[in-house]
Design a protein around this nucleic acid. Sequence first.
DNA 1: AATAACATTGGAGTTAGCTCCAATGTCAAG
DNA 2: CTTGACATTGGAGCTAACTCCAATGTTATT
Lengths: 157, 157
Amino acid sequence: MEKTYSIQEVSQLLQLPKDTLRYYDRMGIVSPSRKENRYRRYTKNDLIDLMNVQIMQYADFALEEIKGKFQFHRMEHISPADCQEVASFLDAKNAETRQKIEHLEKISQLLHTAAETLRDFNPESDQRLAETVREIYQSIRGKGPVHFEEGCNGHQD
Amino acid sequence: MEKTYSIQEVSQLLQLPKDTLRYYDRMGIVSPSRKENRYRRYTKNDLIDLMNVQIMQYADFALEEIKGKFQFHRMEHISPADCQEVASFLDAKNAETRQKIEHLEKISQLLHTAAETLRDFNPESDQRLAETVREIYQSIRGKGPVHFEEGCNGHQD
DNA sequence: AATAACATTGGAGTTAGCTCCAATGTCAAG
DNA sequence: CTTGACATTGGAGCTAACTCCAATGTTATT
C-alpha cells in the first residue's frame, strides 16, 4: 500500500488551505479517494496533481483549463496525439503570455514617463507621455478616433 | 456655458457601457453634475477623467486606487508636493509591473520548455523543464522545501 | 465516557467590476 | 396626447477562486 496523506498534511506540505483542497475536490480538479469513514486520503499522484495545479495557477491558467490536462504521470501509455494536443494548448497559452508581457511593457513605459514628467516637467517628456498615452488609448478602443480633446495629464494648461 | 454630453454620447464616444458609467458615478470614480431633471451631464473634464480611468485600468490599477488621483487638469495650481506624491505612487506601480513582467517571463519560458519537451522528448529539455518548475515552485511557496517526490510532468517513468 | 482534535457537508459570503432588470420619470415628434 | 427613445433608481445576479460557518461525524487520548 502506498503512503497517503490526510488533508491537513497536504495542506501543510503544499501550503494550501484545507478549504481550498476541498474546493478543488468539489470542482473535480483533484479528487482524492476516501477511506470508509469518508475522510480524504491523498496519494503521491494527487500531490503531484496539486503541485501541477499550483504551477498552472502561477502561469495564469484558469482552474477550468487545468481540469484533466497534465496528468501524464497517471497514464500508462502516452499517445503522441495527446502530447501534440497539449503542446498546442501550451503554445497558445504562451502566445497569450507574450501578449500580456508586451502589454505590461507598455504600461511600464507609461508609468516611467508619467513619473518623469511629474518630477521634472519638460516638453520632451510631456510629448513622449502624450504619445504613449495615445498609443495605448488606441489599442484600448479598437479604433474609432477620439476627436475631441485628448489631453490626459493636464499639463496643457 | 461649456459643452456637455449625455450618458449615451459619452458611452459612444468612449466605448464604455452606460451601466459602467453609472457604476463609476455610484463609486465616486467619475461623478458628473446633473440637470434639474436628474439627468447626468458630462463635461469635458469628466471625459478626461474617464479616459484617464481607462488608461489606468489598462495599467492594472484598481478603481479604488484611481479614485481622486490624476485630476491635475482640474487644479489651478499644481503643488510640487502633490507631484512628488503621485510620482512615488507611479514608481511603486512600475516596480510592481516590472515584477509581473518577470513573473510572466518565467511562465513563458515554462510554457515553451514544456511544449518542447512534449513535442520531442529528450533528457536536456526534460532537465530544463524540471529546473524551471523547481524555480517557480520555490518562488510560489516562499520557502520550506518539498522533500517528497517533485516530478511534475510525469516523464520520469 | 468525556474531551479535544481532527474530519465531513451544504450553503452562504467575499471581492472587483461590471451587467442586467423592472419600475418609473422625462422629453421630443407627430 | 400618445408613442418611442431616452433617462433615473435600487437591487439582484454574474464570474472566479476562494473563504467561512454551523451542524455533525470520527478518531485518539485521557
